[in-house]
Design a protein around this nucleic acid. Structure first.
Lengths: 226, 226
DNA sequence: ACCTGAACACCGTTCAAGT
DNA sequence: ACCTGAACACCGTTCAAGT
């Protein structure tokens, strides 16, 4: 993640800069870290790499490709080690929480994933492989695994958006009189002092999905309902 | 949806054009219809309204506001009549399917919803009110309703992306050897001649969520598992 | 009150010219 | 093989000047 380049041993001049995929992704993450996704422009990226914007195009097809690389890199920080440590249903929950938390910090990548070919995303693929292995080891029938992953992912992406939404989204304001039932239901929610409403909805949905998908796969839960 | 304006009765000259929210939304939908969301620029919108781009800013704060208006308009085509006709669990499924199908055609609006204040979105609010009423009438405890809606919505938004993703997203290609288990699981899926894999995952997840959320709310299903 | 045309400060991307 | 600088074809938005 450092932006200075070491000199090659014994060489009299600086090593030629090679804009590898790894360096470009690292620079992109620094730009995002400093200014958010709005700050991630090809110019800003080039500046961080101390290069002219046009030079980037010798190493990258398009900004979209940078986003695809970012997506795959970010995916590698989703935790799959839980499948080695925990009963499968707890592991699935832990994986889903980690997955949501990671992409809540990278929501602009979510539309990228939706179109991303896994054949170009080795880390993403490694994650799928780990989850598949975890579920197979737990006795899940293979034909149910992909639909289960897809359903969980859909829920996770939507929940990642929800996690970063303003808390007062459901304030009905001047329209409260037109939606008395919903307004009352929302007020019950905002009264909760514990944690955020988004987290409660995520946990409720996650439990429902894990239980329901396992039931559809003909499996009892290993550690009972949460 | 027509773009020509009637003359006011008895008036000697054309009615002054008023760029109402309704006309702007209609024009935006025409632009999207013709060229997709990539074609929706302020210039294109102005052209469709036969006005200079700068004129739009007398009626709209920003392009983001246009998107918010669009979002609310599009939301009104989500079906909630099912709550009047069907047992609540079937109604919830029918609503969710309609919701997903609508936003699969409008995925660029999904990030807009995530930040949209319902107080400025009357049709969206009306939808929430209808769902709330439907669930209350079925005996759902009020405190469970908002989390259930949020969880279902998260799943629906993610599934909308999934519904428009290329079918071969999971082709592992040259990386197949690195992910043998997942590759095999995906092949079982693509072998299915019936419908699209995204639909199977959506239905599996939807059943799991409806069943699980109802269970969490202490309710049995009205019409048995699907 | 609402329009136009010019201008501004950006974008991503291309390409000839260099080394 | 890879860089630079200039240029291109856009964006969304602002604003003085009009009616």
């Amino acid at each position: 993640m450092s932006s200075d380049e070491p000199r090659r041993r014994g060489a009299g001049r600086p090593v030629k800069r090679v804009l590898s995929q790894a360096r470009i992704v690292a620079a992109a993450l620094e730009v995002i870290q400093a200014g958010g996704y709005g700050a991630l422009t090809m110019s800003a990226l080039a500046r961080r790499l101390e290069v002219a914007p046009s030079a980037l195009y010798n190493h990258v097809e398009s900004k979209q490709e940078v986003l695809r690389w970012l997506q795959d890199f970010v995916m590698s920080s989703v935790d799959t080690s839980c499948f080695a440590d925990l009963p499968w249903d707890q592991a699935l929950r832990a994986w889903a929480r980690s997955y949501r938390d990671v992409f809540a910090r990278h929501t602009p990548l979510i539309p990228v994933i939706a179109v991303l070919q896994v054949s170009g995303a080795p880390r993403t693929l490694a994650m799928y492989e780990a989850v598949t292995q975890g579920l197979q080891r737990a006795g899940w029938p293979t034909p149910q695994i992909v639909p289960a992953i897809v359903a969980l992912e859909s829920f996770i992406y939507g929940s990642a958006y929800d996690a970063v939404a303003p808390q007062d989204i459901f304030d009905t304001g001047a329209l409260a009189a037109d939606s008395p039932r919903f307004t009352a239901a929302v007020e019950l929610q905002t009264g909760r002092a514990d944690g955020r409403a988004a987290d409660a909805a995520f946990e409720a949905g996650l439990s429902a999905l894990v239980t329901g998908l396992a039931g559809g796969a003909g499996l009892p839960l290993e550690s009972g309902p949460a």
